[in-house]
Structures are given as C-alpha cells and as structure tokens.
C-alpha cells in the first residue's frame, strides 16, 4: 500500500492558522496606522521646532528642556495629579449608590435610570449645567450660600478653587458610570456565599469587605481603568467651563497640548508633541500596570 498523498493545497492545510490571521488583519492594520504609528510620529515631531506649515527644524531635546522650566506645564502636571486623586472618589461613591440601589422595591428601575442619567448626558452639557450652577451672582450655589448667610464665592473665577469645581462636575457622570459597573457586578454575586457568610456571623462592613468586595473585583478593576483614563484625558469639561483659565490655572496636560499645538494662538507642533509624549508616558505607567494585571489574572484562571 502506498501512503496516501496529501492532495490538499497549502491554504487548506493551514486553514486553522490562516483564518484567524485574516480576520485580525483589518483590525491590526487600522491599529497600526491610527494608533501605533502616530505614537512614534509624536516622538519624532517632539524633537522639532515646527509650526505645522513651514520647514521643521531639528532641535533635539530643546522642547523637553523648555517644558521643565514652563510654569504652565508645572501647573498642568499638578492639576493632572489632582484629577487623578480626586476622580478616584467616583469608585467608592459609585459602589455605595450601587449597593443602595441593589434592592427590590417598586419602581427601582426608575431610580436606577435617574442615577444613571448624568452619564448619558454629553460632557459639554454637564459642563454648561455646572458652570451655571457656579455663576457668581445668579448661580444656584451662591443662592444657597447667601440664603445661609455665607459669602458668595466665584468658584470658576478663583484660581485656587476652579480645578476642584471642574473635578466636582466631572465626578457627577463618572460616579454614575462606576455605579452601573457595580450594579452589573452585584448581579453576579453568589447568594450562597452571602448566606454562608451570614451563617458565620458576618454582617455590615465585614460582609462588604470580606464577602462582597472580593467578588466585585472584576468590576472594581474596570472602574479603576475607566476612571484613571478618564481623569487623564479630561479635556471637554475644562474647555467648556473655564477654557483653561482664570490665567491658565485649570489647564491639564491634554488641554495644554491642544492649546500649544492646535488652538487659535498655538501651532507649536513640536512643543505640543513633547507634552503629548509626557502624557503618554504617564498613561503608559497605568496602562502597563493594567495589562500586567489582566495577563496575571488570565494566567491564574488557566491554571
């Protein structure tokens, strides 16, 4: 008997390898063209002095050297840190609203939608609503303050308060977002484990900390990811509420990058790119951590 010769073509033989690759190809292509290559372009442009129109002059690391002495950059960096730290408040706030709403009462769906409502609004609308709320003479906030006999404050006009005022506005939709994540997570909490915990005498904070929260870990992880990334790319609210002012005190890196590179008085592409690179590196720390975490979780799940 002669051995059966394989008459299938190369393509047929390797179907199992080729098919997924083909499916991945368009996505990979777009990812490389629109995400990966712009990153390297930014690195490259940040070494030039270029107005986006004329000749670009190579200036080495001068843009970065200028950044170090730039007070606007320092302010932006500090504001980014404030955003990062305070924006994370959305996670516990979202958790507690979710726990509060996770009950069976008549009309609970309506209450849930009401709490979720701010997340549906465009950031622009949120910004406008809050800037009216903060208005110095006619805003609701000052109406309340004066009612209680307190001095009125101009939140968005005060360089020391403005950033906090914007973060508070940002927390409103972000809390709703985290709440939804936790509500979905709570559906997956195992009632038997709760029961078991209850038999062992756990209740209140102990129950939350030792039984419920560990099961919500995936939701917490996602909430962290979206909140941190949201904090670092905060832009629309700042643009709407203060336009970076008063005198640049509410700028963050993303807004400063836009101002330097793309706004009416900007067009310093190299300098803007240098800011973008710094912002990218900061994000890379978090993104790297998230990726590592996901990879570890997946490996654990497989073993």
């Amino acid at each position: 008997m002669t051995p059966a010769t394989d008459t299938r073509s190369w393509l047929q033989k390797n179907r199992m390898t080729v098919t997924p690759l083909l499916f991945l190809l368009p996505g990979l292509l777009f990812f490389v063209v629109y995400v990966i290559s712009p990153i390297f372009q930014s690195f490259n442009i940040s070494l030039y002095d270029w107005d986006g129109l004329g000749e670009a002059t190579y200036i080495g690391l001068d843009n970065y050297r200028e950044l170090v002495d730039d007070r606007a950059f320092e302010t932006s960096l500090w504001n980014n840190l404030k955003w990062l730290a305070l924006y994370l408040l959305a996670i516990p706030a979202g958790l507690f609203i979710a726990l509060f709403l996770n009950q069976t009462v008549t009309g609970i769906r309506l209450y849930k939608s009401l709490f979720f409502f701010p997340f549906v609004l465009s950031q622009v609308v949120v910004g406008l609503v809050f800037s009216w709320f903060y208005l110095p003479r006619v805003g609701l906030l000052n109406a309340v303050l004066t009612f209680f006999g307190l001095d009125s404050i101009n939140v968005l006009g005060d360089p020391d308060l403005a950033t906090y005022g914007i973060i508070a506005a940002g927390l409103w939709p972000q809390t709703a977002y985290c709440m939804i994540l936790y509500l979905t997570g709570l559906n997956a909490v195992d009632p038997e484990q709760i029961e078991a915990g209850r038999l062992d005498g756990a209740k209140g904070w102990k129950m939350l900390w030792h039984v419920v929260l560990p099961q919500l870990k995936p939701a917490t992880f996602i909430a962290f990811v979206v909140t941190i990334i949201g904090a670092l790319r905060s832009f629309d609210l700042i643009s709407i509420m203060t336009n970076g002012g008063p005198f640049g005190s509410t700028r963050v890196l993303s807004f400063m990058m836009f101002e330097q590179a793309l706004s009416e008085y900007g067009f310093r592409m190299g300098y803007g790119s240098a800011i973008a690179v710094v912002l990218f590196l900061i994000m890379l720390v978090f993104i790297g951590y998230f990726l590592w975490q996901m990879w570890r979780d997946e490996r654990e799940a497989r073993h």
Binding site: L135, P136, R137, N154, L156, G157, G245, P246, F247
Partner: peptide, 11 residues
C-alpha cells in the same frame, strides 16, 4: 483700585 471694573469679570 477704585473699583472701576465689575467683579468676577474673569468668569
């Protein structure tokens, strides 16, 4: 200094 301008104009 004499208060010629309105308050909170930066807003």
């Amino acid at each position: 200094d004499m208060g010629a301008f309105i308050d909170d104009h930066q807003t």
